[in-house]
Write a protein that binds this DNA or RNA. Structure first.
Lengths: 231, 231
DNA sequence: CAGTGGTCTAGACCACAGC
DNA sequence: CTGTGGTCTAGACCACTGA
């Protein structure tokens, strides 16, 4: 007999019994103490298995009420947001970066509304192209709040992309990200070598640090791009 | 003095010291025992704080080597994949569902390639429309493998959507999901009340259970839809 | 080999939610 | 009030990995 019982074994066994119908959706599981006795483990070990099942969206726990199988399992994906360079290199392609334009301008109104900037806030506006094996891969339209990140004035974005630069400057920021589809504008079509109006996959991301708006970026990918995840 | 030290406090303090530059990216943290002494906590408590920091992509741990701040923090999003009905209702809108078409056909070649189906595999092909406040919200193009889910023959999809039906039948399956942009085809444009060629946000999802292909679904959203997440 | 994290245990106390 | 999960502790042993 196996004397040591891993929380993984317990988790897997509980999951098996849920999938197998022994504990159908909505039903109540035995309490921690009972399970600990059954598995011959300490209560903390069962607790850890349970905590992971909660994280995975399989069960819900409430004090006094006990542990229930979720009536409908919570499906969730964990998406890694890699740097474009890493993404391209992971596909076995060569990565190249090009700065298309760079200028310092007052924030346009649409951006002020989105980032809650004061009127006339000075922004560094960059357009960058990321290439995979020499072909356009992603077009990056980047706005950096110079009031919050003044050192961006001195940065050289001709060789290092602003994403990489920013993650080094402010590695731990709060982010809102959105995924959508948009039609290629003439300038985008030119940069990405596609037709005007082509459907492009778009990611927009705005970043805050201690409540202050740091940057807004709109990334459009070459035609046909997909973001894939498993769970 | 506070006698009980929560792992949350420890986690927050370590995070603060990392963000503040005390432990810059790439640097080595003190070992668990030293931190436990410093915080006046048990080693397991520090361990739990550390485990969460690993989950959050902030630090890396290796035995013998110790704990390091990740050179570039791993950015990751956790996306909930709700049922359309829940998604619509969460926005405070009324949800309505309509079955557009339903037929049983052999799997077309493109689908056989994607799901690794044998030739002639019989599929239930459904087209469904999900409405928000009476307006088209999402068009669902669903294929169900009748060889793996024969009970789908008897199911009534005129009132209950296939997504909800399937999550009840096989709640715990393996899923591959992809996000992309596509141009509205004539039929899609008609159903979604948009123009042919309009850029549409698209989610494709294929589901397996014990290695067998269960279903493939292609969901296109009304024009302008965004999927939003924070982290 | 020695140092680190990874896990388990037994017991304790606490916090919350139903009754 | 009582039963449940949530957390902490002190100690132990194990597993990996680098020197």
């Amino acid at each position: 007999m196996c004397t040591t019982t891993s929380f993984r074994v317990i988790k897997a066994d509980i999951l098996r019994r849920i999938s197998g119908g022994e504990w159908p959706p909505g039903s109540l599981l035995p309490n921690e103490l009972a399970l600990a006795r059954e598995f011959g483990a300490a209560r903390a070990t069962v607790g850890r298995a349970m905590r992971e099942l909660v994280d995975d969206g399989i069960v819900e726990r409430k004090r006094k009420t006990g542990t229930r199988v979720r009536p409908v399992p919570l499906r969730q994906v964990r998406l890694d947001i890699p740097l474009v360079r890493v993404e391209v290199e992971a596909q076995g392609s060569s990565y190249r970066y090009a700065l298309v334009s760079s200028e310092s301008v007052p924030a346009p109104n649409w951006l002020r509304a989105r980032l809650d900037l004061r009127q006339g806030a000075e922004m560094l506006h960059l357009v960058c192209l990321h290439l995979s094996d020499g072909h356009p891969y992603q077009l990056e339209d980047r706005w950096i709040n110079l009031g919050a990140v003044p050192q961006a004035r001195q940065a050289d974005f001709s060789t290092l992309g602003p994403s990489e630069w920013l993650t080094r400057q402010m590695p731990f920021s709060d982010i809102e990200i959105s995924f959508s589809a948009s039609a290629a504008e003439p300038e985008q079509a030119r940069q990405l070598s596609c037709a005007v109006g082509d459907p492009l996959f778009r990611i927009e991301r705005q970043t805050f640090w201690e409540g202050r708006p740091i940057t807004f970026v709109r990334m459009v990918y070459r035609c046909g791009h997909r973001l894939i995840a498993r769970y």
